[in-house]
Simulated assay, not measured.
Amino acid sequence: MTGAKILAFGGYQPDKVVTNDDLAKLVDTNDEWIRSRVGIESRRVAADDETVTDMAEAAGAKALAASGLAPSAIDLVIVATCSPLVPMPSVSAIVAHRLGIVAPGAFDLNAACAGFCYAMDTASNAIAAGSARNVLVIGSEKMTSWVDWTDRSTCIIFADGAGAVVVGPTGGDEPTGIGPVVWGSAGDQGNKITVTGRTGSMRQDGQAVFRWATTAMAPVALEACRRAGVTPADITAFVPHQANLRIVEAIARRLGIPRERVADDIVHAGNTSSASIPLALSRMAEQGRLQPGTPALLLGFGAGLSYAAQVVTVP
Rank of each mutant, 00 (worst) to 15 (best):
R43C: 03
A58T: 02
V77A: 06
P84T: 12
D48F: 05
H97S: 15
G100N: 11
D75V: 08
A65C: 02
V91N: 12
M88H: 09
M88Y: 11
A61N: 06
A63G: 06
D48N: 12
R98L: 06
A65N: 10
A73R: 01
T51G: 08
G105T: 14
R43K: 15
I101R: 01
G105C: 02
R44N: 09
C82Y: 02
A103K: 13
S72N: 10
V102Y: 02
K62D: 12
A59S: 15
L99N: 04
D75H: 06
C82I: 12
V79T: 13
L69H: 10
I78N: 08
C82S: 15
S72W: 01
A58W: 02
S72Y: 00
T81R: 05
S72G: 14
P84A: 09
P87Q: 09
A103S: 14
A73H: 05
V52Y: 01
P89V: 12
A80F: 02
I74R: 02
G68A: 08
T51W: 02
A65H: 07
P104Q: 12
F107Q: 06
P87S: 11
E50M: 12
F107A: 04
A46H: 06
L76W: 05
R44A: 04
A66M: 00
D75K: 09
V102T: 15
H97R: 14
T81Q: 06
G68Q: 08
V77S: 10
S72M: 03
I94H: 06
G105D: 01
I40Q: 10
I101L: 03
P87Y: 03
P87F: 05
A66C: 02
A96S: 13
A63V: 02
S92R: 04
T53N: 07
S83Q: 07
E50G: 10
D54L: 08
S67W: 04
E41A: 15
L85Q: 14
A56F: 04
I74F: 05
A96F: 10
P104S: 13
P71W: 06
